[in-house]
Amino acid sequence: MSRGEPLTDQDRLPWLLKLHDIIQREMSPGRNAIVVCSALRRLYRQVLLFGSKALTSSEPGSVATCSLPGVWFLFLYGTYDMIHTRMVARRGHFMQPDLLRSQFEVLEPPAPEENAILLDIRRSTDDICREIQEHLRQLS
């Protein structure tokens, strides 16, 4: 990405599998954790949840369940123009604004059964954080 080239599935899979291992390690003793990555496609989210089992299923995305209890995805969404404007304004980030189009082309917003909280980035960071905290409180 720093060279201006979008990542492929082959580029992403090794680190998605590593993140799956981290999620499993943190869940096993019942701890809480936050893992941050751009899981743009349903397959990527399934790999995060189910590891290599998500890759060996006969149909992509057909793992028996689409979510795991206790694992939630935060889906921060906004328009291409808004995100592009923010990217152009930031400095020192590895991802070039020109790559945003490829991200939108790959994007598969989460389905309702994927345990996703949809968060509009037009809202303030404080408002988004409060909504996440409220959701987590309701789960307790």
Rank of each mutant, 00 (worst) to 15 (best):
residue 1 M to R: 09
residue 2 S to I: 10
residue 3 R to S: 13
residue 4 G to N: 01
residue 5 E to A: 14
residue 5 E to Q: 14
residue 7 L to Q: 02
residue 9 D to V: 04
residue 10 Q to A: 15
residue 14 P to C: 04
residue 14 P to K: 10
residue 15 W to P: 05
residue 19 L to N: 12
residue 21 D to L: 04
residue 21 D to P: 00
residue 23 I to V: 13
residue 24 Q to W: 04
residue 37 C to E: 03
residue 37 C to D: 12
residue 39 A to G: 07
residue 41 R to T: 15
residue 41 R to F: 07
residue 42 R to P: 02
residue 42 R to F: 05
residue 43 L to H: 03
residue 43 L to V: 10
residue 45 R to E: 11
residue 45 R to D: 11
residue 46 Q to W: 04
residue 47 V to G: 13
residue 48 L to F: 15
residue 49 L to F: 12
residue 50 F to D: 04
residue 52 S to G: 03
residue 53 K to M: 10
residue 54 A to D: 10
residue 59 E to A: 01
residue 60 P to A: 11
residue 65 T to L: 09
residue 65 T to M: 11
residue 73 F to M: 03
residue 74 L to R: 09
residue 75 F to A: 07
residue 77 Y to I: 07
residue 80 Y to V: 04
residue 81 D to W: 02
residue 84 H to I: 02
residue 86 R to E: 07
residue 88 V to G: 00
residue 88 V to C: 00
residue 89 A to G: 06
residue 90 R to F: 09
residue 92 G to F: 08
residue 92 G to P: 08
residue 93 H to E: 09
residue 93 H to C: 01
residue 94 F to S: 06
residue 96 Q to K: 15
residue 97 P to K: 08
residue 104 F to K: 04
residue 105 E to L: 13
residue 106 V to A: 11
residue 106 V to C: 03
residue 106 V to K: 05
residue 108 E to L: 04
residue 112 P to S: 14
residue 115 N to L: 03
residue 116 A to R: 01
residue 117 I to Q: 12
residue 120 D to T: 03
residue 123 R to Y: 02
residue 125 T to K: 03
residue 126 D to Y: 02
residue 128 I to N: 07
residue 129 C to S: 12
residue 129 C to E: 12
residue 135 H to F: 15
residue 135 H to W: 09
residue 135 H to Y: 13
residue 135 H to T: 10
residue 139 L to E: 12
residue 140 S to W: 01
